[in-house]
Computed example of a mutant assay.
Amino acid sequence: MGSSTLQSRLKALKPSTPARSLTPLLPLIFEKIDEGVSLKEIYKLLSEEGFSINENTFKSFIRRNRIKREQTLNSVRDECETQIKNSENDLDSTKPGNDTLSKGMSISDALDPKVREELGSKYLKKRRKPKEGL
């Protein structure tokens, strides 16, 4: 079977349930709900356009997807708040008076040429022990 016939057959498949056929329309449906359009009006329009779905099934589908949408928005909001707090903590560490490095050395000490040379020598001159058998 050729790739193009497989693709055309896959495109021809219909959603397994009537409610699933509404999934591509969800953003627009939620937009209309947010604007104040009632579910009953939206259901009536969909029925007129040929969507054969029970009104209670439609309402249940919208309710489930509204919950998913709210959970997604909440998790995104929580992630953003966490990132903001982390960036604020990073900014706090750069405030004047908070100029210590991880090893208890101040930034001014680390920038001192003599201390910097000692640090460089300390770390650059470390040699690894050769592995046995090489």
Rank of each mutant, 00 (worst) to 15 (best):
M1S: 15
M1I: 13
M1D: 13
G2L: 10
L6R: 06
L6F: 05
S8D: 06
S8K: 10
K11S: 11
A12R: 07
L13M: 10
K14V: 05
P15K: 03
P15L: 03
P15Q: 05
S16D: 14
T17F: 06
T17G: 06
P18K: 00
P18S: 04
A19H: 01
A19G: 05
R20G: 12
S21I: 12
L22E: 01
P24Q: 07
L26M: 03
L26K: 01
P27F: 08
L28C: 15
L28H: 15
I29G: 09
I29T: 13
F30R: 11
K32P: 11
D34R: 02
S38L: 03
S38W: 03
L39G: 12
L39I: 10
K40P: 00
E41G: 05
I42E: 08
I42G: 10
L45P: 00
L46H: 12
L46T: 11
S47A: 04
E48F: 10
E49C: 11
F51G: 02
F51I: 03
S52G: 09
I53P: 04
I53M: 13
I53S: 13
N54E: 07
N56L: 12
N56H: 12
F58V: 07
K59F: 06
S60K: 09
F61T: 10
R64D: 04
R64S: 09
N65Q: 04
I67D: 03
I67M: 12
I67N: 04
K68R: 08
R69S: 11
E70M: 02
Q71M: 03
Q71P: 00
L73R: 15
L73I: 15
S75Q: 14
V76R: 15
V76D: 13
D78S: 15
D78T: 15
C80D: 10
C80Y: 13
E81P: 02
T82F: 05
Q83L: 01
Q83C: 10
K85W: 02
N86K: 04
S87P: 00
S87T: 13
D90H: 12
D92G: 13
D92Q: 14
T94R: 10
T94V: 12
K95L: 14
P96S: 12
P96E: 12
G97C: 06
G97Q: 05
G97F: 05
T100L: 02
S102G: 13
S106L: 00
I107N: 01
I107G: 05
I107S: 02
I107L: 06
S108K: 12
D109N: 03
D109T: 06
A110H: 03
A110E: 10
A110G: 05
D112M: 10
P113S: 07
P113C: 08
V115S: 10
R116F: 01
R116I: 08
E117P: 11
E118S: 09
L119Q: 11
S121R: 10
S121T: 09
S121W: 11
S121H: 00
S121E: 05
K122V: 01
L124N: 12
L124P: 00
K125D: 14
K125R: 14
K126E: 06
R127S: 15
R127A: 08
R127C: 15
K129Q: 14
P130N: 06
K131Q: 00
E132P: 14
L134A: 07
